[in-house]
Nucleic acid binder design. Structure first.
Length: 883
DNA sequence: AGACTCACGTA
DNA sequence: CGTACGTGAGTCTA
């Protein structure tokens, strides 16, 4: 407890605490948009703010090391020599942290040749002499020696930086069994691995305490070391010099010459604007009020800067809204409230004026010309609104910006899926959001017009941040894609309930039979779908050998079961695998069946309308949900029966499928410029046969299917950053053979490896990868000191430009096809996109025209150094059309 | 009810 | 110890 009559001096070891924060906080959550890591800064400041609040110091200073060099390294060059290199991404944060502290008007102290803890020791001594209560905050154990009746140590516990343990003389005695000033004696005997100070072998804390208690002091102990028996006695005598050295080095200097004394460290008001500026740069938002709360701002809170005032929405008649819209010259932001797929209200905003009105047939008719005009319109998450307009008979024109897409393009890994997220991040403001869990919300959400106003301002902020290449991806690729997806989702795809239910019934009968057989074999009934119960049966009842470990037990996945079947054949395993397969298919069928007619426009709609999530991936791909139509089974003959339920719809003639063959390999050939690979694609030869011939040194006609399988796995694996280990596992070959395969492969296609290496290197420098069209994906982890994180990032970074470029190409083809079909007045329409495949519903008599458009636009979506090959199929259903 | 894990479908 | 996704069942926790 501090005596409130005395001033309190708080001195902090900035370096050691920031370092702990650096490892405690996940860097992916603390990286600015220009890839500055901020986890150490954030963690340190957060802890400091809590400390200031809790301890209310009257005087304060933060000490930093200047470099690794100090009088200790002069005396003993090995001091701290085993410490690994300070990660550069930590070092880079220190100057920024010091800038923050400067803005907060907290003195930063450093001194050449001594460590931060020596500064702490000096200030602690001076402080206690001058009548301060002193709080020492450090993550270095050596500071324990500073503790006395006036000096308290706050030391981070193992739980992390936020939990500080308070050491006064009593707690030190309890914890270490000695008085604080004796702690360095213990440490000298035990040694300190992290400082590369070896102690006496076999002597730990217990022995050291025992000796010190017995002999009273370290000097006495060393003097009479001959009295100690046994091996440890010998060890002590052998290492007396080490102990003396340790004791010399771990004594903190308390007479360092400093430019200021405790009295000059009085807490003074912070520089509010400077804090705002640097926090804006570091993208700290929630920390801002906490810091202002903790350090005096010198301002009366009443007259602090007002937040930007939220304009009141102006409820207007439709006629007024229309004339207002017609008078606008710049961009207008729009926010349409959609309920049950249809508009119910609509709000508009310019930079200063807002308009809002209810939706009705009359409103739709009156607003339609403006919506269909080229007048520039800004949305947040336009797709559902564009769909709602389409349902109301309005095809939007002039879509100029979508803040949701812009935010995603800038930082594809973030879950910023709502306007309020974007407002928080890019405007630093809180948008009013009604609490959806409350029946009677305490706070009203923003009205549509107010949302539009936030959208317009967020768009301006995002435009500032978006690099040109990314902005062009937004305008030239994503926005046209958005409009296409809206039509595809509304169109849906016809799916036959009859086909599905027949198949489901068959599978149901089969799963029942399989389960019964399985239970008979095991001798009891249990839930085959429960991994937990299954483990009991496999590893206890059936006594099969334990498999690969998972977080909660042992794996029972298909690959593991197949391995088991080979090593310990058991009829149960086969039944289980068949049961799994059948139940999985049945699940898929059921979920598809229950999706038929949902979200459709007509009451008797027999189609499935998926939702494409345009911001659903980090690479630029789409994802599909509710239901996911991008993972409909295809691999086995039987599973393809599900695809045969996807039929051509009423009023249409056939389905057309078109897919890119080996688009990712082609993109890799283009990006790497590998002559062999480029020749492979230009030769017209089967890719894997061509590559196999080169790798194995045979004629293409002599490539066996085993050879082909191997190079095929290798080629595909390349795109994902496959290792020899992974390749051997997949091909079930020895790791040495996999390694040899990779050597041979790269001997013939070396430019591919060079490209992949260079591409990751460049990403490491830039902090992001880029697709052919300029889409970026940040990779802060490429410089992580954590090997697992770093290597995962390397593989993802290797894959991102390839997968991302393929996604770009497909999007370009997709919206051009959509646009050409409409421009040619065809009824044929694109229904599905499955990453490298499109499914088109072709109207009677339109096959030739539609096929022509699809082929032309897919093949011509990008100019690469290899051709883009397109395979087209036709049929009454998706399965038939696939051939 | 919501979060998590496992397993598995696709490109 | 191969990238990118979404879904459903079981299970645990609040």
């Amino acid at each position: 407890m501090t005596d409130s009559a005395k001033p309190t001096l708080m001195v902090v070891d900035g370096h050691s605490l920031a370092y702990r924060a650096f490892f405690a906080l996940p860097v992916e959550n603390f990286t600015t948009k220009d890839n500055q890591h901020t986890n150490a800064i954030y963690g340190f400041l957060s802890m400091l703010v809590n400390l200031i609040k809790a301890e209310q110091p009257t005087h304060m200073a933060i000490a930093f090391d200047t470099s690794r060099h100090s009088f200790r390294t002069d005396e003993y060059p090995e001091y701290k020599a085993t410490r690994s290199e300070t990660p550069p991404e930590f070092k880079g944060q220190i100057p920024l942290l010091q800038d923050c502290l400067a803005a907060m008007s907290i003195p930063v102290l450093t001194k050449e040749g001594v460590e931060a803890d020596d500064i702490l020791a000096t200030l602690a001594k001076q402080g206690s002499e001058q009548g301060f209560d002193v709080l020492v905050v450090s993550g270095d154990r050596d500071t324990i020696q500073l503790v006395n009746d006036e000096v308290t140590l706050l030391y981070p516990s193992v739980q992390g930086v936020s939990q500080l343990k308070r050491y006064d003389p009593v707690t030190v005695q309890e914890r270490y069994g000695v008085r604080p000033e004796q702690y360095p004696d213990i440490a000298a005997l035990v040694g300190e691995t992290s400082d590369n100070l070896p102690g006496v072998p076999k002597v730990g804390e217990k022995t050291a305490v025992k000796w010190l208690t017995q002999f009273g002091s370290l000097d006495e102990l060393l003097e009479r070391s001959g009295e100690i028996k046994g091996v440890v006695g010998g060890n002590l005598r052998d290492h007396i010099d080490d102990v003396r050295r340790n004791r010399k080095l771990n004594r903190l200097l308390d007479d360092v010459e400093l430019p200021v004394g405790p009295a000059e460290l009085a807490v003074v008001p912070a520089d509010v604007q400077a804090i705002r500026d640097i926090f804006a740069r570091l993208e700290f938002r929630t920390l801002l009020p906490r810091v202002f709360d903790a350090v005096g701002t010198g301002e009366d809170p009443a007259d602090s800067e007002p937040a930007v005032e939220l304009p009141a929405p102006v409820e207007s008649t439709v006629a007024d809204v229309v004339s207002w819209l017609d008078a606008q010259e710049g961009e207008v932001a729009v926010s349409i409230v959609v309920s049950g797929g249809s508009p119910t209200r609509v709000g508009f905003a310019g930079l200063t004026e807002l308009r809002e009105t209810g939706w009705s047939e009359e409103a739709a008719a009156a607003l339609r010309p403006w919506f269909e005009s080229d007048a520039p319109k800004v949305f947040n998450d336009a797709k559902p609104q564009v769909k709602a307009l389409l349902r109301a008979g309005i095809r939007i024109g002039g879509l100029a910006y979508d803040t949701l897409l812009a935010g995603w393009l800038l930082r594809p890994s973030l879950p910023d899926k709502t306007l309020s997220h974007l407002v928080d991040r890019y405007l630093g403001e809180k948008m009013p959001v009604a609490d959806p869990t409350q029946l009677v919300p305490e706070t009203d959400g923003a009205t549509p017009a107010q949302e539009a106003w936030f959208t317009l301002r967020a768009a301006a902020a995002l435009r500032e941040d978006l690099p040109d290449s990314v902005a062009s991806v937004l305008v030239d690729i994503e926005l046209p894609t958005l409009l296409t997806l809206a039509d595809m989702e509304l169109a849906g795809v016809a799916v036959s309930h009859d086909v599905l239910s027949t198949f489901s019934a068959e599978l149901g009968a089969r799963t029942d039979g399989l389960a019964a057989e399985a239970f008979a074999l095991v001798g009891r009934e249990f839930n085959l779908g429960s991994p937990k119960q299954l483990q009991e049966v496999l590893f206890e009842d059936l006594q099969l050998p334990k498999t690969r470990k998972t977080k909660t037990g042992y794996s029972t996945d298909a690959a593991v079961l197949a391995d088991l079947q080979e090593s310990h054949p058991h009829p149960f395993l086969d039944l289980l695998l068949q049961h799994r397969e059948a139940t999985k298919l049945r699940q898929i069928i059921e979920s598809l069946d229950s999706a038929i007619g949902k979200n459709g426009m007509a009451p008797d709609d027999a189609r499935i309308h998926t939702t494409y999530v345009q911001t659903g991936s980090q690479t630029g791909r789409l994802s599909s949900t509710d239901p996911n139509l991008q993972n409909i089974p295809v691999r086995t003959e039987e599973s393809r029966r599900i695809r045969s339920a996807f039929e051509v719809g009423e009023g249409y003639e056939t389905l057309l499928t078109a897919d890119y063959s080996q688009i990712e390999m082609r993109i890799m050939a283009h990006l790497s410029g590998d002559e062999g690979l480029i020749e492979a694609f230009n030769s017209g030869e089967d890719l894997h046969r061509f590559v196999g011939a080169r790798v194995f040194g045979v004629e293409p006609s002599d490539v066996t299917s085993a050879m082909r399988t191997k190079v095929k796995a290798m080629s595909y694996g390349l795109v994902y950053g496959l290792s020899a280990f992974g390749l051997s596992k997949q091909l079930r070959i020895e790791q040495s053979e996999a390694k040899q395969l990779m050597v041979e492969y790269f001997a013939r296609f070396g430019a591919v490896r060079d490209y992949l290496r260079a591409s990751v290197m460049k990403a490491k420098e830039d902090g992001y990868t880029e697709t052919i069209f300029g889409r970026r994906r940040p990779f802060p982890d490429l410089t992580s000191p954590n090997r697992v994180l770093r290597e995962n990032a390397e593989r993802a970074a290797l894959n991102a430009p390839i997968q991302g470029s393929a996604a770009d190409v497909m999007k370009i083809a997709l919206f051009r096809i959509h646009s050409d079909l409409r421009a040619a007045d065809l009824r044929s329409r694109v229904l599905l996109q499955i990453h490298d495949e499109l499914v088109v519903e072709v109207a009677p008599g339109e096959w030739d025209a539609a096929e022509q458009i699809v082929r032309t636009q897919m093949a011509g979506a990008a100019e690469l150094s290899v051709p883009l090959d397109v395979q087209v199929g036709r049929g009454r259903d998706w399965n038939e059309a696939a051939h």
